[in-house]
Design a protein around this nucleic acid. Sequence first.
RNA 1: GCGGGUGGUCGGAUAGCCGCGUUGCGAAAAGUAAGAUUCGUUAAUGAGGAAAGUCCGGGCUUCAUGGAAACAGGAUACCGGAUAACAUCCGGCCGGAGCGAUCCGAGGGAAAGUGCCGCAGAAAAUUACCGCCCGGCUAUAUGCCAGGUAAGGUUGAAAAGGCGAGGUAAGAGCUCACCGCUAAAAUAGCAAUAUUUUAGGCAAGGUAAACCCUAUCCGAUGUAAGACCAAACUAGGAGUAUCAGAUUUAUCUGACGGAGCGUUUCCACUCUGUCCAGAGGUAGGUCGCAAGAGCAAACCGGAAACGGUUUGGUGAGAUGAAUGGCUAUCGCUGCAAACUUUAUAUUUUAUAAAGCAAUUGUCAGUACAGAACCCGGCUUACAGACCACCAUUUUUU
RNA 2: UGCUUUGUCGUCUAAUGGUAGGACAGCGGACUCUGACUCCGUUAAUCUUGGUUCGAAUCCAGGCAAAGCAG
Length: 132
Amino acid sequence: MNKILVLKKRKDFLRAAQGIRMVVSTVILQAAPRLSGSSESFRIGYTASKKIGKAHVRNKAKRRLRAVVRDVFPSMALDNVDYVLISRFNTADCKFKDLKSDIKWALKKTNKMLLGEDASSQNTEQPNTPSC
RNA sequence: GCGGGUGGUCGGAUAGCCGCGUUGCGAAAAGUAAGAUUCGUUAAUGAGGAAAGUCCGGGCUUCAUGGAAACAGGAUACCGGAUAACAUCCGGCCGGAGCGAUCCGAGGGAAAGUGCCGCAGAAAAUUACCGCCCGGCUAUAUGCCAGGUAAGGUUGAAAAGGCGAGGUAAGAGCUCACCGCUAAAAUAGCAAUAUUUUAGGCAAGGUAAACCCUAUCCGAUGUAAGACCAAACUAGGAGUAUCAGAUUUAUCUGACGGAGCGUUUCCACUCUGUCCAGAGGUAGGUCGCAAGAGCAAACCGGAAACGGUUUGGUGAGAUGAAUGGCUAUCGCUGCAAACUUUAUAUUUUAUAAAGCAAUUGUCAGUACAGAACCCGGCUUACAGACCACCAUUUUUU
RNA sequence: UGCUUUGUCGUCUAAUGGUAGGACAGCGGACUCUGACUCCGUUAAUCUUGGUUCGAAUCCAGGCAAAGCAG
């Protein structure tokens, strides 16, 4: 199992914001396919703005998102796509089960839309098969 | 016992599964400008009292360097001590709050000068409206002119010490007693200051968190500082260059010009010397980066802050930013039930109040808050728990 | 992370330490057959907590919020 790659550049975040946007009650998911086809795995970024609370609240939100991503993303996410998770006001407080199911649902729906777009533009992109 | 005050300590615990950062060890492939990277590990370790606000002080960094003076700008401000330093801390003085323990105070100067004090009031700073009084003119009085006065009046936040007696034409510290104020001396104290005595008669209201004056202190910058390694892009042109002397003919010495971090001047010292253009050390990486004016205990000195000696231990280092997610058990707080006691009605029981030692719960809650170069403070936020001492009141002995 | 600045009716702004003013918006009325324009009236604020002062929007200190700069 490979390590999960993390987005670090502001440019990448801006590009992800141009893509598909999925809003659920606890979190916002953004996704955009990468243009250069060389890289293999998906990448992911986390955002927690000052709006949701002070520093320790933001850290906690990001940590919980990371915990969910570790469980969910390796088996479900698509290759060659950049995802961005934006935490909302209740991300740090809500129950972990709810957060997990929300993200699962959002990811499934987003992937469907991405595959639809790719089929129309005739780019063959296969879903990542569970490795372990 | 109730409700208070001061100082201090702590700020959930244990176990399981899955993960993250750093370091150590082992392995793998690739070979770069440099540094990386990946995998494994029954190896070690990983957030606070405020890590916060960024409000003071210091270390360290660069601005090439040191010293002196003046100006500008800023900070501080009762006294003594502590400290590397401070706006911090300790002790004391004075003023204010409280029955008290105790708490609060930017607490120098208003006879160096300038400004301001709305409305009201005669007058807001060398005051005279009403009034009181003497004199002159007129003369029953009233009135007019020239003075004296600060007792009384109104206004206001504030009106030239207060109160009583004497005194006077009327008055006035004009005189006296008491109180307040100021000055001097003596005593106590290192001092702020306090007490006593004597004298002055009151010296001209407030405001300096208005300008200002006095005393003391202060250069700017802020680890994204700064040092090093360094891809890509790129490294050009005009044409002998301040003056004098010496020679070794491209060097030295002196003069002149320029620069030296708030501004100006002086001294020392250093760098620099024709013009245009330009590459800066950018992307990226490494260092800076954690043993410290540090922590704990004992003893000694000191009234205390604090200082000294000895011993012990020393364990974060991220950079889209690690220290977590879930579960179980326990702890703590609240709530409810049940229980115990008391009172009332009634005698199956119900209602009310108090209690919390023990019991139960598919119950609720478990604060403030996340290191970012490092220390000393201050300020602000904080569920709750514990310890010591002190004072008020009530009860008992 | 470091640094700097600013907070006044719903909005945009004034105000030497001395009654918080104006415009737009809102509400009510007049004008009109009705609406607009116009006119009159009215509601409404000094971010917050303390201090200095006789008296603070203003001066000083702490807090809160917002904006900007460096990258």
